[in-house]
Design a protein around this nucleic acid. Structure first.
Lengths: 123, 123
DNA sequence: AGAGAAGTGATAATCGATTATAAGTTATCC
DNA sequence: GGATAACTTATAATCGATTATCACTTCTCT
């Protein structure tokens, strides 16, 4: 078994340090200085998911994003300005209140939209 | 000004009576008996959105869905079995609790996943 | 009825996202 | 150091969703 390649390490590092899940394109843009090809990004992501090290985060209206697996339950914020996804810690109680009778609830996602700290007008 | 065509009326009726937002493909499948072409579906949806009569609902991992505009605030349930989207009435308080400081909140979406009444095991 | 505008269905074209291919590179193992 | 397996880049191919085109039909108005 071989160690992770330099490229795969770089991609993994970006994901570990990101404020939220990133898409293949975002990772590629962020890796431009290293000259990593887009195909390598996709391969590393696919291997990561298969190895259980990464998981997919599908947010509405944008391509699949990826984040390190095993993080605690959290949700996402989508900035309308810079289009980044940012992790939100914690959750909100009482979701079952809007679940109709006879329905089985297995998972949920809460999405907040607006401007992130960087894009919000200075207070 | 011309009245809405028979096809556009049929599409509109489907959306009015649906339990939740529908994608172009779902509308097309549901209109097979009328022999409506997929291009007509897309055209009617585009016109509807431009006219302010329809609005888009983007749910993660699936193509854009459409619903009649002007409905009260609501959210969506996605059935893992039949893949339909179903409207959930009401909302959940306390979303600001997970918003980080300095962030501006303009909108939100709550998504519940699981099995709808039809797909849930009989109780 | 006949002209013209608007709509339709089939299908080709396009688009962004993703995957496959081919030729070259790097690491591992003997 | 050389065989070889795994990996890389660039790019072509593919895929599903959506849009454009074209020949034809339907509606509206006179």
């Amino acid at each position: 078994m071989r160690e992770r390649s330099k490229q795969a390490q770089a991609i993994r590092k970006l994901l570990e340090e990101a404020a939220g899940p990133m898409s293949a394109n975002e990772l590629w843009s962020a890796s431009q200085e290293n000259g990593i090809g887009i195909a390598t990004i996709y391969r590393a992501l696919k291997r990561g998911v298969e190895a259980g090290e990464l998981c997919e985060a599908n947010l509405p209206g944008s391509p699949t994003r990826y984040e390190p697996a095993g993080r605690t339950h959290h949700h996402h914020f989508l900035c309308s300005e810079c289009h980044r996804a940012i992790d939100l810690h914690g959750c909100v109680p009482g979701l079952e209140a809007i679940l109709p009778p006879q329905f089985t609830l297995t998972d949920h996602e809460i999405l907040l939209f607006g401007l992130c700290a960087d894009c919000s007008p200075a207070s």
